[in-house]
Amino acid sequence: MYKPLRCPSYEDVACQETDKALQEAIRGEAAAIKFYTYLIELTPDQVQRDLIFGIREDEKRHLNNFQAVYCRLTGCTYSYPEPDVDQPASYCQGLAKAFNDEQEAYEFYKANYFCNKRHLVKKAFLDALLDEAEHARWFNNLLIRNGCFQDP
């Protein structure tokens, strides 16, 4: 008997429990804030410093949003451990790590956006995923601007 092919969709994504996804998002945002604090110290000029400072401020907003949603859903604030974040060895290394981390965060937030049905949760993940895509674009721009390339 003929069985029609089933097309994959975002509904097929294996979803974490919402509270666990929010906890992971909170820890990730806290780690990004700490990392960008280190990266700002290595930044070669004020224009780039201001840009990374603005990105760090976005991450603080995401952290607050995720904490607020978590508290609304569970009735308590999530107490996360101090992020274990290494300082980058160089500005270029820091930019590359930031670029990769932003892309990973984007994918995580996108999956959780599609996994959740609660408007409040979806809104927090959507806000963060849109910013993370923009941040990745800016870090890619800074990688190019600073000549942070390695020959293959």
Rank of each mutant, 00 (worst) to 15 (best):
14 A>Q: 15
16 Q>F: 15
17 E>R: 15
19 D>M: 09
20 K>N: 12
21 A>Q: 12
22 L>A: 05
23 Q>P: 01
26 I>C: 07
28 G>C: 06
28 G>A: 12
28 G>V: 02
29 E>H: 03
29 E>I: 00
29 E>P: 00
31 A>N: 09
32 A>Y: 01
33 I>N: 00
33 I>P: 01
33 I>R: 00
36 Y>F: 03
36 Y>R: 03
37 T>D: 06
38 Y>F: 07
40 I>V: 10
41 E>Q: 13
42 L>V: 00
45 D>G: 11
45 D>A: 13
45 D>P: 04
45 D>M: 10
46 Q>R: 14
48 Q>A: 13
49 R>N: 08
49 R>A: 07
50 D>P: 06
52 I>P: 00
52 I>K: 02
54 G>H: 10
54 G>T: 12
54 G>R: 11
55 I>Q: 04
55 I>Y: 05
56 R>M: 12
57 E>S: 04
59 E>A: 06
60 K>D: 11
62 H>D: 09
63 L>M: 04
63 L>G: 11
65 N>D: 12
66 F>T: 05
66 F>Y: 09
67 Q>L: 11
68 A>L: 14
68 A>Y: 06
68 A>E: 08
69 V>T: 02
70 Y>N: 00
71 C>S: 11
73 L>D: 02
75 G>D: 05
76 C>G: 13
76 C>W: 10
77 T>I: 14
78 Y>I: 01
79 S>F: 11
79 S>W: 05
79 S>H: 03
79 S>Y: 06
80 Y>G: 13
80 Y>D: 00
81 P>L: 03
82 E>H: 11
83 P>S: 04
83 P>Q: 00
83 P>N: 05
85 V>L: 08
86 D>S: 15
87 Q>G: 08
87 Q>N: 15
87 Q>I: 06
88 P>K: 10
89 A>V: 06
90 S>D: 13
91 Y>K: 02
91 Y>A: 02
92 C>H: 07
94 G>W: 05
95 L>A: 06
96 A>V: 09
97 K>T: 13
98 A>T: 01
98 A>K: 01
99 F>T: 09
100 N>S: 13
100 N>E: 15
102 E>L: 01
103 Q>P: 01
106 Y>I: 12
108 F>D: 08
109 Y>L: 11
110 K>W: 04
111 A>Q: 06
112 N>C: 06
112 N>W: 03
113 Y>S: 09
114 F>N: 14
